[in-house]
């Protein structure tokens, strides 16, 4: 009896494996986690968000006030990121979400797609700067496929947000494009509030003294209201170089807060909102 029972159990096991292989796999065949092929429906995500932002601007009643939420370094803290997005959805003042980079942990396609899936739940448009972790593996290619260029500018009401890719080591020890940054900073209307988002703060270890000087002097001479960064997972806010520029380190999303900034009359209010 015992001998007869054993093969039955194994047969059931084999059948269940076949059935699970055939029917329960959502992605049937997987070639590699390193794949950089982005399905067409996920491309041009930034354009969709830009369209949402344009609608928001035309619908808005107060054109002198801008309120945005800041998040950073979500890596693979997916549950925390989703909780943050749901908390921001409840705050009806927030008009857009800006992310300080490191939206993935290893630059893998699946991480980008999970991040995108979570951010799709947001009622407001979102924009992110590229982080060092986002450039690992084939991440840089995937970022460009999903979101577009890594250096870009966003103008919303009287605020100008400059997203600057300052990654050095992960992009083959390259030089960030300071000439582009200078051009964007100088071609600015005097009424505009300038914000710069770059993942790595100039006081970080991957900046050489020359790169640090280039960045901080551009900030200082162009009246940047706030230089916003990620990378370090702790929050920081202050005049790091004792010049006219305020520097901020957002802090990682697993610390379970988001930064809410309200810009009005050339000044801003900052608030740390726990969720």
């Amino acid at each position: 009896m015992l001998l007869k029972k054993k093969p039955n159990f194994i047969k059931i096991l084999i059948y269940s494996i076949i059935i699970s292989s055939l029917f329960s796999c959502q992605k049937t065949f997987d070639y590699s986690v390193y794949s950089a092929y982005v399905p067409v429906e996920y491309r041009a995500t930034r354009l969709i968000n830009l369209e949402k932002l344009t609608h928001k601007e035309t619908d808005s009643t107060n054109n002198n006030k801008v309120c945005f939420a800041l998040l950073s370094d979500s890596h693979s803290y997916f549950d925390d990121l989703e909780d943050a997005v749901l908390a921001i959805n409840k705050d009806k003042d927030v008009e857009l979400i800006l992310l300080g980079g490191d939206i993935t942990d290893g630059g893998m396609l699946d991480e980008y797609l999970i991040f995108r899936f979570i951010m799709e739940q947001s009622e407001v448009p979102y924009f992110s700067v590229i982080g060092n972790h986002d450039c690992l593996a084939n991440g840089y290619t995937i970022y460009q496929e999903i979101y577009g260029t890594d250096d870009y500018v966003l103008v919303y009401k009287d605020c100008k947000f400059i997203f600057f890719n300052d990654i050095v080591w992960e992009l083959n020890n390259r030089e960030p494009d300071y000439f582009w940054l200078k051009e964007q900073l100088t071609n600015t209307n005097s009424e505009e509030n300038l914000f710069v988002l770059a993942h790595i703060a100039p006081f970080s270890d991957s900046f050489s003294p020359l790169q640090r000087y280039a960045y901080t002097s551009l900030m200082d001479t162009n009246n940047v209201l706030l230089s916003i960064h990620g990378h370090h997972h702790q929050h920081y806010y202050g005049e790091y170089y004792n010049d006219s520029v305020m520097y901020m380190n957002i802090g990682s999303v697993d610390k379970r807060y988001y930064i809410k900034i309200t810009v009005e009359n050339k000044t801003y209010d900052m608030e740390r909102v726990r969720f």
Binding site: S21, C25, F29, D30, V33, F78, E82, G106, M108, D110
Partner: peptide, 24 residues
């Protein structure tokens, strides 16, 4: 089949289920 990364996503995100991490 599955791999270490997929298992990590399964642990870190409540919406990733066992059926999402196995491929053929």
């Amino acid at each position: 089949t599955t791999n270490d990364l997929y298992m990590k996503y399964y642990i870190n995100y409540r919406k990733v289920h066992l059926t999402n991490i196995f491929t053929m």
